[in-house]
Nucleic acid binder design. Structure first.
Lengths: 336, 336
DNA sequence: CCGCCGTCTGGCAGCGCTGTCCAAATTCCG
DNA sequence: CGGAATTTGGACAGCGCTGCCAGACGGCGG
């Protein structure tokens, strides 16, 4: 914590007033080319960085935004962070990554307290915080800029980056239908994630578009965890006739179902097809590698930061492309 | 960004000078019980939070530390973050999570710039940043407090939290030896991670302790990635006699080896045992679930923050326990 | 030739706190 | 009951910047 240089020292060495140095640092107009160069030289030479605290205090902006998340998946969090971080960094903002307990009774005041404390210029919300009406309202009321990543509710409200969960689920379902499957089970995620309802809807729509009646008995509730996928699969194995395909609402549950199939000695994909959703690291690490939907998680976060900070987008909501990744857990329906 | 309350407003309502409010906020002495209570009431009622920027600027401390990492594993990063975050939060510090490119030529000045800019009170280093001599020196020279998580080099220098990689690798090796394996291959990690050398050393020591000659041909270089584990396993499958067990330096490589075994139709654990290291999420998601070492990642980070900030520890280095997790990829050596 | 505007630069207040110093109120002794 | 020690709370400067305003200078049109 030794003497870091200050703007005044820079100005003294450069032979200008410290106000001029401030202008250079903030890329303001009305600084002659030569002065600018001279100041920049001194800045580089001293390795000077303006105190973030001082700029925040003196100016109207803190160049600080927070990414709020409450998601147990390391994979998801890691990629959301890295996408948002990249764009923030490019735009000269600092990103505060904040895990939030979305069920805490004081969640909203706590977030607001963070906003005050850090003088945040905006916040980026990821699911399931995107779905909290009190939070959204509080932010609106505060007139604090925010973006939501993949919101499930009120999709046309405010800034948001999304992917089309319904269409993606339809693609997976269509893929299975084209392989000849007719008994396709669906393992859904928790209620708190609207995405899981969207995926269910897509599954159902595609089924019906192919003239296949939707069978509620083939829908099992899970909670996006590996264990719940295994449990769902084991329940399904008791059905008669046994479904020939399982579409799980995320990769963790698909991996759980896959493990259950291995355990029960059911060959995948020969006797049973399994599909996931997300294309997380898991999808390539299990065997056989999982057929799934590549969710553009990193890009969603990158675009979210861009939307909020750069403000160059034409529409307040942007939708990113997903991709069906056909790997080895899905195959033709077994004939017997 | 509407009018957040300031310390002066609090003081006005509480009927004291703003300095007294400051004393209450900082838990200083010389404030009567009653005054303290009154101030705290107003603070709670207004949901007042002191401006972090202002305290940083005015005081000698910023109550801000950074966690620096450069690790591609979402699992590892997530748990390191959450452990460090928890302890920092408990101690009233804010944690800045900063991915750093350890190979960037300006890495050290960039870190120092961050330190200045954010007025950091300390930094937490995770591998492989723990192994960068220039960084360590720069930090020492700056007299900036720091801790290293699981350092490989100069383990007795400065504050650090570690686990015993050598002993853990010996345990895995012993477990395999006890199952009757004699042809045990080792897939090592990249040179940049000293942990991988330690694990190799443990493997070798245990072998020799059991009177088994170390065979360099059974050591294959990997890079901690899933793909490299698969490649190593496929190379090993060509050896004659084929090793009966593979000990991979981390779970990703073990999962890769497991997938390769599945592909080559080699039954695990009946024809081949596989062991990993880390007990990451993967270990339970693959099938069969992986025998591995539980690395106390989260605890290591928690303890690191504690060591640096609470300063209650007796020794500058603390070592945490690992645990051998025997699951289903290891079994008795096949007899033929 | 004057006035006016545009470009560049500096002066100064003040952001919301903490640290230091000092005054007043209270307590504790002999 | 007086004086010193202790507790309590206020005044004030200043942390390192940005916002606003004013001043110096030069070019241009009328």
């Amino acid at each position: 914590m030794a003497g870091r240089p200050t703007i005044k020292e820079v100005s003294k060495i450069a032979g200008v007033s410290f106000k001029t140095v401030s202008r250079v640092l903030n890329n303001e107009k009305h600084v002659s080319e030569e002065t600018r160069r001279r100041v920049e030289e001194v800045v580089a030479q001293l390795n000077f960085r303006p105190s973030h605290a001082a700029r925040t205090l003196a100016g109207r902006r803190s160049f600080q935004v927070a990414l709020l998340y409450d998601n147990p998946s390391p994979y998801y969090v890691f990629h959301i962070q890295s996408g948002a971080m990249e764009r923030c960094h490019e735009l000269g903002y600092r990103l505060l990554m904040q895990p939030i307990d979305s069920n805490a009774p004081d969640m909203v005041p706590d977030v607001l307290a963070l906003v005050d404390e850090a003088h945040l210029d905006g916040v980026i919300l990821s699911p399931p915080l995107t779905e909290m009406p009190e939070l959204i309202e509080a932010l609106d009321k505060r007139k604090l800029p925010y973006v939501r990543i993949a919101p499930g509710l009120r999709k046309d409200h405010g800034l948001a980056t999304t992917m089309d969960d319904v269409a993606a689920a339809r693609e997976i379902t269509r893929h299975l239908l084209q392989l000849g499957h007719r008994q396709i089970a669906f393992v859904r995620g928790p209620e708190s994630h609207v995405s899981s309802a969207d995926r269910l809807a897509g599954y159902r729509q595609e089924l019906e578009a192919h003239g296949i009646a939707f069978d509620p008995a083939l829908v099992i509730a899970g909670d996006y965890s590996f264990a719940s996928g295994g449990a769902a699969a084991r329940a399904l194995f008791g059905h008669s006739p046994r479904p020939t395909a399982i579409f799980a609402g995320n990769d963790d549950m698909a991996a759980g179902a896959l493990a259950a199939a291995h355990e029960a000695d059911i060959a995948v994909p020969d006797a049973l097809s399994i599909a996931g959703f997300d294309d997380s690291d898991l999808a390539r690490a299990v065997w056989p590698p999982l057929t799934t939907i590549r969710q553009p998680v990193r890009e969603l976060a990158y675009a979210a930061a861009d939307l909020m900070l750069a403000g160059t987008a034409v529409t307040p909501q942007v939708m990113l492309e997903h991709e069906l990744m056909v790997r080895a857990t899905t195959g033709p329906v077994p004939k017997d």
